[in-house]
Simulated assay, not measured.
Amino acid sequence: MSEPASPAARPALAAPLRYLLMTFAALCVALGVIGIFVPGLPTTVFILMAGWAAARSSPRFSAWLEGHRLFGPMIRNWRETRSVSRRAKWSATVMMAICALVLFLTARKPWLAEAITGLMALVLAWLWHRPEPPRAS
């Protein structure tokens, strides 16, 4: 897999596309923050998408995200080593398990709860196969 081009090496995007990506980044941050409190809504995935979109649309927004005490480490770990922290993996696992339990207790159609839980299991399998970031010395 090739390394992503540095922001300076990327061609400038047209203003409408830049604004669209910036809006997408802001929406992903909002969903990521909501995901902190709502079981089943993944914080890490939304923050990583926000980092991707911000890096392509707004250097200022991207710098803010990377400097954020909660979001920055997630984005830097992914960008530098394609890794996810053990804490984020466990958090996602616990939240998805809670969501699956709620689904099975409330779903009127068991197949729907089973299908959604199956998708969450696939996401967790992918997530747990990601390496963990190297420990700081």
Rank of each mutant, 00 (worst) to 15 (best):
M1G: 14
M1N: 11
M1E: 07
S2R: 14
P4Q: 09
P4D: 09
A5L: 15
A5E: 15
S6V: 08
S6N: 10
A8I: 12
A9R: 14
A9N: 02
R10W: 03
R10F: 03
P11T: 01
A12N: 08
A12D: 15
L13Y: 03
L13V: 00
A14F: 11
A14K: 00
A14D: 03
A15F: 01
A15R: 13
L17C: 02
L17K: 15
L17W: 08
R18K: 04
R18Q: 10
R18D: 01
R18I: 07
M22R: 11
T23R: 10
T23A: 15
T23Q: 08
T23F: 10
A25N: 11
L27M: 14
L27Q: 13
C28K: 07
V29G: 03
G32L: 04
I34T: 10
I34N: 06
G35K: 04
G35F: 05
G35E: 10
I36A: 13
I36H: 11
V38P: 03
V38M: 10
G40C: 01
G40T: 01
L41T: 00
P42H: 03
P42N: 02
F46Y: 14
F46M: 13
F46T: 12
L48T: 02
L48H: 09
A50D: 07
G51L: 00
G51F: 06
G51C: 02
W52H: 12
W52P: 11
A53S: 06
A53W: 05
A53R: 05
A55E: 06
R56E: 04
R56C: 06
S57M: 08
S57A: 09
S57L: 09
S57I: 05
R60A: 08
R60G: 02
A63M: 09
A63T: 04
A63Q: 09
L65G: 00
L65Y: 01
E66A: 09
G67K: 07
R69C: 12
L70I: 05
F71Y: 02
G72K: 00
I75Q: 04
N77R: 01
E80I: 08
R82E: 06
R82K: 10
S83K: 02
V84P: 02
V84S: 03
V84L: 05
V84M: 02
R87N: 09
K89V: 03
W90F: 15
S91M: 07
S91T: 15
A92V: 07
T93K: 09
M95T: 14
M95Q: 15
I98V: 15
I98K: 06
C99N: 11
A100F: 05
L101E: 08
V102L: 07
F104V: 12
F104Y: 08
F104W: 15
F104N: 00
L105T: 15
L105Q: 15
L105C: 15
L105W: 04
L105H: 02
T106H: 11
T106F: 07
A107D: 13
R108Q: 15
K109E: 14
K109P: 11
P110T: 11
W111E: 14
W111T: 13
A113R: 05
E114N: 12
E114R: 13
A115M: 13
A115G: 07
T117S: 13
T117R: 01
G118E: 04
M120D: 06
A121N: 00
A121H: 05
V123T: 03
L124G: 00
A125G: 12
W126R: 01
W126H: 10
W126D: 01
W128M: 06
W128S: 04
H129W: 10
E132G: 14
P133W: 01
P133V: 00
R135Q: 14
R135N: 12
R135W: 09
